[in-house]
């Protein structure tokens, strides 16, 4: 069976899919959380906390875009 199934590639695919799939989705939802908190905190004139939420949202968007760029590189190099 081990010859028929490429076990190593299978395990790598499972682990990478779990980490990347769950990770990227959660990171993007953190970006949305940051934007939502920024809107709420700005309305309440809590400038510093709003700025922190905006920075967090920006970082999360950057990580998501970097993951998309990495995905395109993976596709083009396969």
């Amino acid at each position: 069976m081990a010859v028929v199934v490429e076990t190593k590639e299978l395990l790598q695919t499972v682990v990478a899919s779990l980490v990347a799939g769950v990770g990227i989705t959660v990171v993007f939802s953190v970006a949305i959380w940051g934007v939502a908190r920024f809107a709420d905190l700005s309305r309440n004139e809590r400038t510093l906390a709003a700025g922190g939420a905006a920075v967090l949202a920006g970082l999360a968007v950057l990580v998501t875009l970097a993951a998309v760029a990495f995905g395109i590189v993976v596709m083009s190099s396969s």
């Binding site: 490429e6 590639e9 990478a16 990347a20 799939g21």
Partner: peptide, 22 residues
């Protein structure tokens, strides 16, 4: 949110399998 999760899961699983040759 479900649509994004489904597509995100789909894209990462396909890309991971492409990358590792499975």
């Amino acid at each position: 949110a479900q649509g994004f999760s489904a597509q995100g899961a789909g894209a990462t699983v396909i890309l991971a399998s492409t990358h590792f040759g499975f």
